[in-house]
Design a protein around this nucleic acid. Structure first.
Lengths: 212, 212
DNA sequence: ACCTGAACACCGTTCAAGT
DNA sequence: ACCTGAACACCGTTCAAGT
């Protein structure tokens, strides 16, 4: 891994990086193969040499978005209890998603399609193992954590761009009181993480008896 | 509200109903305005008399999918504790989403866009109020519950249609062990609901001191 | 190995005009 | 009130052919 200096290995990563910039600047609906090709000074068909289809491209972009979390060394969480690990991982995931426009929508779909791995699962499992928590429990906690966080930030980001477009739609259909539900600040997010962590704590103390 | 018998009030609901059938039979990607118009024996442009755009149409379809939950009388949950209410509402929501193909993806987007209200919020708030739980807590619980459930079933349905297409993609990027994470049966879903309910219980007993 | 050029089979949406 | 006809401005993807 030290022999190759810079063997003209352009492209695949460059394409994903440019896609990420386009995403952040113009949003997911405008992240088209044609716009991306134009930004790269290339024909649309050229992109299909690097990626088999658009979804694979988007998966690569998702991986870039989640990279700070994937690269986070497990040792940085070593000192934490399981409860705190849940909260920290959730907050970090939210940070990653809030870094780029429409990131949560993109990641949500890549995640559901199984084209990208869970961004918190490996770390949470490792920390939990060190505290003697059975994997079955931390698997479930990881799933609750990632689904809630992505869904929450999805909502957060959609309202953000909707507001910036001046689109305030009157909720006509079912619940006229859901303007109240739109109180989605970072504070209620933190509360939710605590609730999830509490739920895991209870599961742990129920399933594994203490060493007394 | 009792004067009008059947004043030739066709259409808007019929369009949404047909859209729901197309969704279930051919999936979300094939639910196009053109296919829908053809199925109705009408020109595509005719749809724009009933709905301002496609997203509004999809919101109406989402409302139909969630109708069994919205129409669920609060009295049916009256006997339950808050803990059980969380689990029942989550399970019912999952049932609604599993009834139609790609329903979770559709509802996820309508929900994020704020075009449809939370399907569990009113009921959970009401039950929680009767047990003296502060609204702030049940709001958070409702949000965790709906985001997790929709996200979970999204994943569930995506893998379902992916399998039916014979698309088993090798997870190349980050975590080669996430084939293990794909163990998404209804059992782990139930475990997750319990964990969420536990988290709410802890919050309740922490914030509101017992009547002793 | 990497890209062009041109085409194929589609999209959502608008809008004058019909009845 | 409800729909047609025709157009506008796009999509993702394929594939022979170039270098």
């Amino acid at each position: 891994m030290a022999t190759s200096g810079t063997p003209r290995r352009r492209s695949r990563e460059d394409v994903a990086e440019m896609a990420l910039q386009l995403l952040d600047e113009y949003g997911l609906p405008d992240l088209t193969m044609r716009n991306l090709a134009t930004a790269l000074g290339v024909q649309p068909s050229a992109l299909y040499w690097h990626f088999p289809n658009k979804q694979a491209l988007l998966a690569a972009v998702s991986a870039r978005i989640l990279a700070p979390l994937a690269e986070l060394p497990i040792e940085d969480l070593g000192a934490l209890g399981v409860h705190e690990a849940v909260r920290v991982l959730g907050a970090r995931l939210r940070d990653c998603l809030l870094t780029y426009r429409d990131a949560s929508e993109l990641v949500s779909s890549s995640l559901s399609l199984g084209l990208v791995g869970s961004p918190v699962r490996p770390q949470l499992l490792e920390v939990a193992r060190r505290h003697g928590v059975p994997d079955a429990l931390s698997e479930v906690a990881a799933e609750v954590l990632v689904h809630f966080t992505v869904g929450y930030v999805f909502h957060e980001q959609q309202r953000r761009t909707a507001d910036s477009l001046g689109l305030l739609d009157a909720p006509d259909s079912l619940n006229p009181e859901d303007a109240v539900a739109a109180t989605s600040d970072g504070d209620s997010f933190a509360k939710a993480l605590t609730m999830i962590a509490d739920g895991l704590d209870v599961s742990v103390t129920r399933n594994a008896e203490p060493r007394a």
